[in-house]
Simulated scan of single mutants.
Amino acid sequence: MKKLFILIFTLCFGLTMHAQNTQTDAERERENKMLEAFLPTLDARRSEFVGQPAKKLFDVIRGSAFKIRNIGTEETSPWAEYKGKMWVYGLSLYNKPAQQAMKDKEVYIIRIILDVR
């Protein structure tokens, strides 16, 4: 009886945790609308961040609906560079992990071009 009770409790707990992590269609649609409103305003404010520390931009992003779930680098092509070297010149911020973005076939990306190599 004790094992049965523990099994039922574990099953209920697992279902509850899974339900909290699953996003409904309404929540996903609301998040997409907030992102679609935020991204054009961020693009319009682009000149505010030029020459400023990256922390200023990341603080704005952190306070928005855009949740950084994956980061990639912007790199030069090894064929265009001297001796085939590649250089990182920017970042790409994604609102979904790569696996989920491939499955959903939709993702929002913020590309940040840095003035460094």
Rank of each mutant, 00 (worst) to 15 (best):
Y94F: 03
A80D: 13
L93G: 03
N21R: 13
A65D: 11
K55I: 15
R30H: 11
I68V: 08
A101N: 05
M102V: 07
A65I: 10
M34T: 14
A26L: 12
L4V: 06
K83L: 07
I61M: 03
G72W: 06
F58N: 11
P53T: 14
K55L: 15
I71K: 02
M17H: 07
T10N: 10
G90L: 05
I113T: 05
Y108F: 09
T76W: 02
D25I: 08
D104K: 07
G90M: 13
F38I: 07
E75Y: 02
G51M: 07
F5R: 14
V50W: 05
L93F: 02
M34S: 15
W79T: 08
C12S: 13
D104N: 02
M1Y: 13
E27P: 00
Q23I: 15
L11E: 04
K3N: 10
Y82N: 06
I109F: 00
F49C: 00
T76L: 03
E81A: 09
K96D: 00
Q23T: 15
T22L: 07
M17P: 09
S47P: 05
G84F: 04
I8Q: 05
C12W: 12
T10G: 09
V88L: 01
D25F: 11
F49I: 00
K56T: 06
A101P: 04
D25H: 08
E27I: 00
K85S: 12
Y94D: 04
A98D: 13
F38M: 01
M17R: 09
P78K: 14
K85D: 14
P78F: 06
E75L: 09
L114R: 00
K85I: 12
N32P: 02
A80V: 08
I6G: 00
F13V: 01
K33N: 14
L15V: 13
I112F: 04
T24D: 06
I6M: 08
S64R: 08
H18D: 09
F9T: 08
E75F: 09
V107D: 01
F13A: 03
A37E: 14
L39V: 07
P40Q: 04
R69S: 06
K103P: 07
L11R: 04
I68P: 00
R117V: 00
K83W: 06
E31W: 11
M17C: 08
I61P: 03
I71A: 04
L15T: 10
R30F: 13
A80N: 10
A80E: 11
G72V: 02
E31T: 13
E29G: 03
E81T: 06
V116M: 03
E74I: 06
M1R: 12
V107G: 02
L7I: 09
I110R: 10
D115P: 08
E31L: 15
M102Y: 06
D43Y: 12
A101L: 03
K3C: 09
I113A: 03
E48Y: 11
Q23V: 15
S47T: 12
E74T: 04
T76A: 05
A44T: 14
K96T: 01
G84N: 04
L93D: 03
D43S: 15
L42T: 00
V50D: 03
I6D: 06
D43H: 11
Y89I: 01
S47V: 10
Q52V: 06
I71F: 08
A37H: 14
H18M: 13
T16R: 13
V50K: 08
L114H: 02
